[in-house]
Amino acid sequence: MSTVSRNTKRPTQRFAQMAQKKPVKNQVVFFDYRDERKLKRFINEQGKIIPRRITGLSAKEQRLLTKSIKWARHLAIIPFVSDEVR
């Protein structure tokens, strides 16, 4: 009995530790498809969308971001491709 209880206890403890280490959700990141300046941060000089590993957004936020960028491109708020790159 004691071994069983130990086995079930250990993983839950580990999960609890992992949950504690999880970074606090950053509420400061924001963007809006209607404003060029609010999207500039999430595209590089070529006009490409910056990946999640660099923006640090959650999956949910990144999904909204890619959509917002594509809407903004359609409305000619941000370019599809910046021509400054040679």
């Binding site: 509420q27 400061v28 990141v29 924001f30 963007f31 809006d32 609010k38 949910k60 909204l64 409305l75």
Partner: peptide, 21 residues
């Protein structure tokens, strides 16, 4: 050009953040 989008919960949440920060 035109675009019509639904302002759902996630969009409104993002709008709030824009207003706040």
């Amino acid at each position: 050009r035109y675009l019509t989008v639904i302002l759902d919960k996630r969009m409104l949440e993002m709008r709030e953040r824009v207003l706040k920060y």
